[in-house]
């Protein structure tokens, strides 16, 4: 087992290097660079060239990648933002934390709804309720996230105009007086702000998750040992609960690590429309400003998260699934 962990861990290294190199190459493929925007400077026409030299942007791009990689690996230093000159890590960590505050509950909620739907649909394949649930989960998927968030916002504003109190906040993560709240009040306040964006994000990943659940359950149900169990005369209920459901949990463990980045993606536009202080707005503004280090740091951290998530999933799977031997 330990050998497996070590091997898996070392397998991550080439993936990580290739992924970051790819990302770096893509960013560098764009014409112009961070300094180009200062060509417009009225008072100081030499500013662009000066900044280019200062930031080392006149060096070959692959060399800069190597410098970058060295700093990340040796010092966990993602460089400084070209826009704000601040340390990239300091810039993105609080935003990353905010994104996670939205994503983890949204993921949990999505799974909490998707698992029963998936299991029910698999056990009662083609029943009326199966179809209704399928269509319902697909409907959440079919509305673009940013539009769903806008509908929610319009509803919130409409509610306030009608009743003169807020059912949900119009946006953000905390109330303005947040810092003066008691700890419990703080948790309640964030939770209240979380409701809207969380619903939007989890609704859109519901279809994906419930369909995976359904598919995997069907797979398990068609396996030989379930058939054997049935033929042994065990009741449907026993078979479903004892064997199938237990295997379904394996499925969840297997996919949970891989779903987080998908949810990060899904939350992207929601963060804008609901004013959630996450990473996407910074990512977008950095990408337009060609602020390479911020873009790279965000891509790298998300990539790391995905890889570690998958690793944990695999390890957990290896622990719980008796069929997997290493």
């Amino acid at each position: 087992m330990l050998r497996y962990i070590v091997r898996r861990f070392f397998n991550l290294i080439p993936t990580f290097v290739i992924a970051t190199f790819l990302a770096w190459a893509i960013i560098q493929a764009a014409p112009g660079d961070f300094a180009s925007q200062f060509a417009f400077d009225q008072v100081d026409p030499n500013k662009a060239e000066r900044i280019r030299a200062l930031l080392g942007l006149n060096q070959p791009w692959y060399l800069r990648y190597l410098y970058w990689l060295r700093n990340v690996v040796l010092h966990f230093d993602f460089g400084t933002s070209m826009t704000s000159k601040a340390s990239v890590t300091a810039l993105i960590l609080p935003l990353m934390r905010n994104s996670m505050i939205l994503l983890l509950p949204a993921t949990a909620l999505a799974f909490a709804i998707a698992i029963p739907i998936g299991v029910y649909s698999a056990l009662h394949k083609y029943s009326f309720l199966d179809r209704v649930l399928t269509v319902f989960s697909l409907m959440g998927l079919a509305v673009p996230n940013f539009f769903l968030a806008l509908i929610l916002l319009a509803f919130t504003v409409g509610w306030f105009h009608h009743f003169h109190w807020f059912l949900l906040p119009t946006g953000g993560m905390t109330s303005t007086a947040f810092s003066s709240f008691t700890p419990i009040h703080k948790i309640l306040d964030v939770s209240w702000h979380l409701i809207g964006p969380m619903l939007v994000v989890s609704l859109s990943s519901l279809a994906f998750l419930s369909r995976i659940m359904r598919g995997e359950m069907l797979e398990v149900l068609s396996l030989d040992y379930i058939r054997t169990a049935r033929s042994k005369g065990l009741s449907d209920r026993t078979v479903n609960v004892k064997h199938a459901l237990r295997n379904a949990i394996l499925v969840i463990v297997a996919i949970i690590g891989g779903t987080l980045p998908g949810l990060v993606s899904g939350a992207g536009s929601v963060e804008f429309v609901t004013g959630w202080p996450g990473i996407t707005p910074l990512f977008i503004s950095s990408i337009f400003a060609q602020d390479v280090y911020v873009v790279m740091a965000l891509l790298t951290i998300l990539t790391l998260l995905l890889m570690v998530g998958n690793l944990i999933s695999d390890l957990a799977l290896a622990l719980v699934d008796p069929r997997i031997r290493y």
Binding site: V157, H161, E271, V273, G275
Partner: peptide, 18 residues
């Protein structure tokens, strides 16, 4: 000072008295 990144957020805060 509340920071937002979407014009609809600015508007909705204004018309709800925030």
């Amino acid at each position: 000072v509340t920071l937002v990144k979407d014009a609809n957020q600015v508007l909705s805060r204004a018309i709800t008295g925030q």
